[in-house]
Simulated assay, not measured.
Amino acid sequence: MEKTNVTMTTEEMQGEPAAKENETKAEKFIRIGEYRMNKAVDAIGRLENLANRGSYEYTQEQVDAMFQRLSLK
């Protein structure tokens, strides 16, 4: 019976695309950057759905707290 390798890289455990063989640091930056940016854009899109007052009730203070947390420091 063939033994399979079940070890995973840190990137694979975080759900990021697996590293390419002989990948440069610049290529790794682009690969991981694209993946993370796409996830961030998707998450922001889901946050936008919260603006629907027909489905949600919230205060201005709650909105301000969310924007404060999203702002870069």
Rank of each mutant, 00 (worst) to 15 (best):
Ile44Asn: 04
Gln60Arg: 10
Arg31Phe: 01
Ser55Asp: 12
Ala40Asn: 09
Gly33Lys: 09
Arg46Ala: 03
Arg36Pro: 01
Glu48Met: 07
Lys28Asp: 04
Ala65Glu: 06
Ala18Thr: 09
Glu16Pro: 07
Phe67Val: 04
Ala26Arg: 05
Ala51Lys: 15
Pro17Ile: 08
Met37Glu: 05
Arg69Tyr: 05
Met13Ile: 13
Lys39Cys: 09
Val63Cys: 03
Leu72Phe: 10
Met37Cys: 07
Arg31Tyr: 04
Glu23Arg: 06
Asn5Arg: 13
Arg31Pro: 04
Ala65Gly: 02
Thr24Trp: 01
Gln68Met: 08
Ala65Met: 07
Tyr35Thr: 08
Met8Gly: 02
Thr59Gly: 03
Tyr35Glu: 05
Ala19Gln: 14
Lys3Glu: 00
Val63Lys: 11
Gln14Phe: 12
Lys73Gly: 08
Glu2Pro: 00
Glu57Gln: 14
Asn38Glu: 07
Gly15Ser: 08
Gln60Lys: 11
Arg36Thr: 04
Glu34Met: 06
Ala18Asn: 11
Gly54Asn: 15
Ser55Gln: 15
Ile32Ala: 04
Glu2Met: 01
Asn52Thr: 05
Asn38Val: 03
Glu61Tyr: 13
Met66Phe: 11
Met66Leu: 13
Ala26Gln: 09
Asn38Trp: 00
Leu70Thr: 07
Gln68Asn: 08
Glu23Pro: 03
Glu12Leu: 05
Phe29Gly: 04
Arg36Ile: 05
Gly33Thr: 01
Gly33Ala: 02
Arg69Cys: 01
Leu70His: 06
Glu27Pro: 07
Ser71Met: 13
Lys25Val: 06
Phe67Gln: 02
Gln14Ser: 05
Asn49Asp: 06
Thr7Ala: 10
Lys39Val: 07
Asn49Gln: 13
Thr10Cys: 01
Gln62Arg: 12
Glu21Asn: 03
Arg46Asn: 02
Gly15Asn: 07
Arg53Val: 14
Leu72Ala: 10
Glu11Leu: 11
Ile32Ser: 03
Ala19His: 14
Glu21Cys: 00
Glu27Val: 02
Leu72Gly: 08
Val41Gln: 10
Ala51Gln: 15
Met66Gly: 00
Arg36Glu: 08
Glu2Lys: 03
Gly15Cys: 06
